[in-house]
C-alpha cells in the first residue's frame, strides 16, 4: 500500500514521468502500431490507414535495399567507430604520454575542435573536403595521385573518414582518463623486466583498461548507429543507395517514398538493435559496479 505521504513525496517526479511517457515511450509504442498499418505521408492512407498485419515486415524481408542498409550500417559502425575512432583515440592517448608537451596540447586541441563543432558544420566541411575539386584531391594531386570523385565513387569511405574526424575526441578523452589510472609502478616494473613496447601494450596496458575499452566500444557503437545528419547531408544516402545506412533508409522510405508504415517498421528494427546494445551496456556498467564494491 502506498501511503499518502509517499504519494506526495513522489509528486515532483510526475512531470518527468509524463514527458518520458508521452515523447519517448509514446513514439516507441506508436511505431509498433503504425508499422502494422499502411499509413502514408500524403493521400487517403495518411488519414485513413488500414491494419495490414505483418505485411511491412514481410516486405522488408524481401526488399534487397534492407540488407544493403544493414550491411552499410555495419560498415559504418565498424569502420568509423570500432576501428577508426576507438583505435585512433587509444593510440593518441598512449602517444600523449611520451610526446612533448606542445605537440600533445596542439593535437588534443585540434582533435577536440572537430568534436565540438555542430554536426552540420562538420558535414559541410567534410562535403567540401571530399569534393572533386576539394582539399583532399588537391593534396593527392600534389603527390602525383589521380584525383577521384570521393562522394560519388567512394561515398562510404568519405563518410567513415568524416565520422572518424568528428568522433575520435570522445574515445581520446575516455582513454586519457583511463590511462591516468594505470599505476606508474606497473609501467616501471614492465620496463625493468625488459618488455618491448608491443608486449607492454598488449600484456600490461590493455588488460588494465579493459573495462574502459568495453564501455567506450558500447557507447560509440550506440552513438554511431544513430548518426543521420552526417550521412544524409554529405551524400543523401547516394549515389543509388551506396551510402544508405539504416537511419537514412528509414527516412527515405517514410518521407521520400512516403510510406510511413514501412518507415516505422524499419524504425522498430533500429529500436530493437538499440535496446540490445543498451542492455549489454547496462550489464557492463553493473558488473563494473560490482567489482568496485
Amino acid at each position: 500500500m502506498i501511503s499518502t505521504r509517499n504519494l506526495k513525496r513522489r509528486l515532483p517526479i510526475l512531470p518527468s514521468f509524463l514527458m518520458l511517457a508521452l515523447f519517448m515511450a509514446g513514439p516507441i509504442v506508436w511505431a509498433l502500431y503504425i508499422s502494422l498499418t499502411n499509413t502514408s505521408l500524403t493521400g487517403t492512407a495518411a488519414q485513413d490507414s488500414q491494419f495490414i498485419g505483418l505485411d511491412n515486415y514481410l516486405t522488408m524481408l524481401g526488399d534487397p535495399d534492407f540488407p544493403n542498409a544493414v550491411w552499410l550500417t555495419v560498415v559504418f559502425v565498424v569502420g568509423s567507430a570500432i576501428i577508426g575512432q576507438n583505435t585512433l583515440g587509444l593510440f593518441l592517448a598512449i602517444g600523449f604520454r611520451s610526446a612533448s608537451k606542445a605537440i600533445k596540447k596542439t593535437t588534443s586541441a585540434l582533435v577536440m575542435a572537430a568534436w565540438m563543432l555542430p554536426e552540420i558544420v562538420v558535414a559541410f566541411a567534410a562535403y567540401v573536403f571530399f569534393n572533386t575539386d576539394g582539399t583532399l584531391n588537391q593534396i593527392l594531386l600534389s603527390l602525383g595521385v589521380d584525383p577521384i570523385a570521393w562522394l560519388f565513387e567512394a561515398p562510404m569511405l568519405a563518410i567513415v573518414l568524416a565520422n572518424i574526424w568528428r568522433g575520435t575526441a570522445f574515445s581520446l578523452l575516455v582513454y586519457m582518463a583511463a590511462l591516468d589510472d594505470v599505476p606508474e609502478e606497473i609501467t616501471e616494473a614492465a620496463r625493468i623486466d625488459g618488455a618491448s613496447s608491443s608486449q607492454h601494450l598488449f600484456l600490461v596496458t590493455l588488460p588494465i583498461i579493459k573495462n574502459s575499452i568495453n564501455t567506450n566500444l558500447m557507447l560509440i557503437t550506440l552513438q554511431t548507429l544513430s548518426v543521420f545528419t552526417l550521412v544524409y547531408t554529405m551524400t543523401r544516402g547516394g549515389p543509388s543507395g551506396k551510402s544508405t545506412t539504416l537511419p537514412v533508409f528509414a527516412y527515405d522510405q517514410a518521407f521520400r517514398v512516403a510510406d510511413i508504415g514501412y518507415g516505422a517498421a524499419i524504425s522498430v528494427v533500429m529500436i530493437l538493435i538499440g535496446v540490445i546494445f543498451s542492455v549489454i551496456y547496462l550489464r557492463l556498467l553493473r558488473s563494473e559496479g560490482d567489482k568496485n564494491e
Binding site: 515523447f23 516507441i28 511505431a31 518507415g263 516505422a264 538493435i273 538499440g274 547496462l282
Partner: peptide, 18 residues
Amino acid sequence: LFSSSLPITAIMVPVYSL
C-alpha cells in the same frame, strides 16, 4: 539510464507521425 542510451534517430519516423 536505459532510455538515455536509446538512439533518438530511431524514433523520429513515429515521432513525426505522432
